[in-house]
C-alpha cells in the first residue's frame, strides 16, 4: 500500500503534502483540545500497536500467501477519527524513518490516502453504518464495510494522484483505476475480515473499550452521515454503473455524450451486451474490455464479499453476545 518515491511527480507530492499537513494539523489540534488528556498516550500506544499489528501475518484462505492489517479503520474506531488519522501518520513516518517503507517525498500522499481517507473517511462510513444498524452488531458491520471502502477509496485516490503526476502519460486512467481498484478490492476484503474479526473479538471481550470511542461525536456525526452514505453510494455506483457508462478512454466525456444522445437512441444495456459478445482470448482484448471486466469484478466481488462478511459477522456477534444487545443505536 505504501507509495514509493518515483511514482508521483514532485508537484503532486507537494500538493498532497500540503493537504495532508492541513488535515494532520487539524487532527492534532482536535487531539490537544479534547477534554481528556488520555487521548495523547492512547494515540501513541495505538500507533505502536498498529505498527506491530501490521507485521503479524494472516494466512489467506485458498492461496499460499499472507495478508496483514493496515489498521486505519481499526484505529479510528478505537480512538476516534482524529486520533486514528494521527496514529496512522505516526505509523507511516516510523516505517519511513526506520525501514524506508514508503517514499520520503510521498509521505504526504501516503498520509492523505491512508490516514485522512483511510481513517477519517473510514470513520465516516463507519458512523453512517452505525446509524443504520443499531447495537454492537452495527459496530462490527460498520467496521467491516468501512475497512473495505477505505482500502478501495485509498487505491482510487492513488490512481488520481498518479494520473495527475503523468499528464498525457501513455496510459488510460479509467483502466488504471479499474485495475488498481479491482486488485485493492481483494486487499480490502482481507482488511475487512481482519478488522471485523478484531473488532468483534474486542466487542465481545471488552465492549467498554469500543463504546466510548464509537459514539459518533460532534461534527463527525453529522458530516459522517453525509459523507458515509455518499461514499457508499458512490462506490456502489462506481462498481456497478461505471462499466456500463464509460465508453472509450475518456470516461467523463463519454458519460456526458451518452447521457445526452445515446441513451435516447438505444439503452446502454444493449450496447454493452454487444461489446461483451466480442472478446475471444487474445483477439479482442481491447482496453475497454479489460476495463469493464475488472471494474465489474471489483464491484460485484467486493459487494458480494461485504454482504457475505456482514452476514457471517452478524452470526458470530449474535453467538458471542447473547444479552448485551440493544440500547446503543442512534
Amino acid at each position: 500500500m505504501h507509495i514509493a518515491d518515483g511514482f508521483l511527480s514532485p508537484e503532486v507530492c507537494v500538493a498532497t503534502g500540503v493537504v495532508a499537513a492541513g488535515a494532520l494539523a487539524y487532527s492534532l489540534r482536535q487531539l490537544e483540545q479534547t477534554v481528556s488528556s488520555r487521548t495523547i498516550p492512547l494515540t501513541g500506544m495505538l500507533a505502536a500497536l498498529i505498527f506491530a499489528g501490521q507485521m503479524v501475518k494472516f494466512p489467506l484462505p485458498f492461496v499460499p500467501a499472507y495478508g496483514h492489517l493496515l489498521g486505519g479503520v481499526l484505529a479510528a474506531i478505537v480512538a476516534g477519527p482524529w486520533a486514528g488519522c494521527v496514529a496512522i501518520s505516526l505509523v507511516l513516518l516510523l516505517q519511513m524513518a526506520l525501514f524506508a517503507d514508503g517514499g520520503w517525498l510521498s509521505y504526504g500522499a501516503n498520509v492523505l490516502n491512508m490516514g485522512v481517507v483511510g481513517s477519517i473517511g473510514g470513520y465516516a462510513v463507519f458512523a453512517a453504518v452505525r446509524r443504520l444498524v443499531p447495537g454492537h452488531r452495527g459496530i462490527v458491520f460498520g467496521s467491516v464495510v468501512a475497512a473495505w471502502v477505505s482500502v478501495v477509496a485509498a487505491s482510487a485516490l492513488f490512481c488520481i494522484e498518479f494520473a495527475l503526476s503523468h499528464p498525457g502519460g501513455g496510459f488510460s486512467l479509467p483502466t488504471v483505476v479499474a485495475l488498481m481498484t479491482s486488485f485493492h478490492s481483494l486487499i480490502g476484503v482481507g482488511e475487512a475480515l481482519i478488522t471485523g474479526g478484531i473488532i468483534s473479538y474486542v466487542v465481545a471481550q471488552r465492549p467498554d473499550l469500543i463504546d466510548a470511542a464509537a459514539r459518533p461525536a460532534g461534527a463527525v456525526a453529522g458530516v459522517g452521515r453525509l459523507v458515509g452514505i455518499g461514499s457508499v453510494a458512490a462506490l456502489l455506483i462506481a462498481a456497478f454503473v461505471a462499466p456500463f457508462a464509460t465508453e472509450g478512454a475518456d470516461g467523463l466525456e463519454a458519460v456526458a455524450k451518452q447521457a445526452a444522445f445515446d441513451s435516447l437512441e438505444h439503452p446502454p444495456r444493449v450496447l454493452v451486451l454487444d461489446d461483451y459478445s466480442v472478446p475471444l482470448p487474445g483477439v479482442g482484448l481491447s482496453h475497454q474490455f479489460w476495463q469493464r471486466l475488472s471494474v465489474s469484478v471489483a464491484g460485484v466481488f467486493g459487494t458480494g464479499c461485504i454482504l457475505g462478511m456482514t452476514w457471517m459477522f452478524g452470526r458470530l456477534v449474535k453467538r458471542t453476545l447473547p444479552a448485551t444487545e440493544g440500547g446503543h443505536g442512534g
Binding site: 500506544m45 495505538l46 500497536l49 474486542v202 471481550q205 471488552r206
Partner: peptide
Amino acid sequence: AMLLIRSL
C-alpha cells in the same frame, strides 16, 4: 485483538 486490549 488481545494485543490491542492489552495496549489500550
